[in-house]
């Protein structure tokens, strides 16, 4: 069972969370007019076999969006932090 360390609620089963996809892509600037930039942001994924930074929402807990580090080749879970603190870095 994948277990996710929620900064608020502690380590919980992944079934309490909803997966929210790749968190590593910076959102284009609000006034970006290039359709391809938005297309790539929304639809294109690196989809790596290895370290992956991703969104999860703790829907059955604190309801916060988290950013989790996970290895997609092994499902080994790393640190989780609150998404509202910023996706960058």
């Amino acid at each position: 069972m994948l277990r996710i360390p929620c900064p608020h609620c502690g380590e919980r089963d992944y079934t309490e969370f909803r997966y929210g996809g790749d968190a590593s892509k910076p959102r284009p600037a609000h006034d970006e007019r290039d359709v391809r930039a938005w297309h790539d942001h929304v639809f294109v994924f690196a989809n790596p076999r290895g370290p992956h930074r991703e969104y999860w929402q703790h829907v059955q807990g604190c309801r916060q969006w988290l950013i989790l580090e996970r290895d997609t080749a092994t499902n080994t879970v790393g640190a989780a932090r609150l998404a509202r603190d910023g996706a960058g870095a």
Binding site: M1, D13, Y19, H52, A73, T74, N75
Partner: peptide, 13 residues
């Protein structure tokens, strides 16, 4: 299963 993975090992839930 609901999240991306290459483990080829399903989750129990």
């Amino acid at each position: 299963d609901g999240f991306n993975s290459y483990t080829q090992r399903g989750q129990f839930p």
